[in-house]
Amino acid sequence: MSAPEQRDEVEMLALMLLIRRFEERASQQYQAQKIGGFCHLYIGQEAVVVGAIAATRDDDYLITAYRDHAHALARGTSANACMAELFGKVTGCSRGLGGSMHYFDKARHMYGGHAIVGAHVPLAAGIALASKYRNEDRVTLCFFGDGAINQGAFHEALNMAGVLKLPVIFICENNLFAMGTSVERSTSLKQIVDRAEGYDIPGFIADGMNFREVRDKLTEVVEAIRQNSHPAFVEIRTYRYRGHSMSDPASYRTKDQLEKYRLDDPITRLRAQLTREGKLSNEQFDVMDKHAKDTALASVTFAEKSEEPPIEELYNYTYAP
């Protein structure tokens, strides 16, 4: 089991690059109509999930909403399996039956990929209940966007997690917009983290454009939970460079706002930190970036060459034996 302190920052940067390049490639393939349905990109938010991975163990549970490509990649699901899922192929991480919004990887404790806003938050409480039931020290990471905090399921889950002292971290990836509606227009709070107070759950804020801040804040929270089971809430302030989904031109926000966040890019920032500290050369970075691009491109070839799920298997997954 890798302990958090063993996660190398250069490797974490490489993971952020892989996510970025994968998503860019997915965007291109979506525009080429190789990918159906909805496709929500994570570009800009990479430091959030990678920071969380850096703070946790491989056997901790992870569950997220529909903007889920990065969470699977961060957990080690291959780019091939992720791209093939977008193409609806049987080699996809959900055998082509889930699609972009329903990535699952049980072996890596990636519990989905859930597309009804807020509806997976009670699932996270249930997974955490199982940890407590079995007396394990595994923590559940539950990611969701700022839109989810106004759903009933979210409130019910936070309350029960509080009552039952469940080992779950509710991670709000606040990217300022729930679809096209800004937080100010949707949420009667000065700051999202205050939601936690209503359930007597400790709340924290972290800058989601800063990998180290996310990692360090979550490390602290995770260690406290392992010592003594309880829920926590972390509002991570981030930004998505793209629209809500591929079909959204994001005309509800200003170019200036987007530019401000682009200048604060999480990958650029971590790269600069590592370079300044002499831990990363430009050449090393270029090699890493090329590797990420090659991996993403190869995943497209893999997805194209993969088979569709067989029609004869249509009824195979309706009921378990």
Binding site: A125, A130, G152, N159
Partner: peptide, 20 residues
């Protein structure tokens, strides 16, 4: 549980995902 049918039904589903 509290009177939170949607919440505790979901909590059950989550627990079932990990084998309870």
């Amino acid at each position: 549980t509290p009177i939170s049918e949607n919440g505790f039904a979901g909590m059950g589903v989550g627990a079932a995902m990990v084998g309870l």
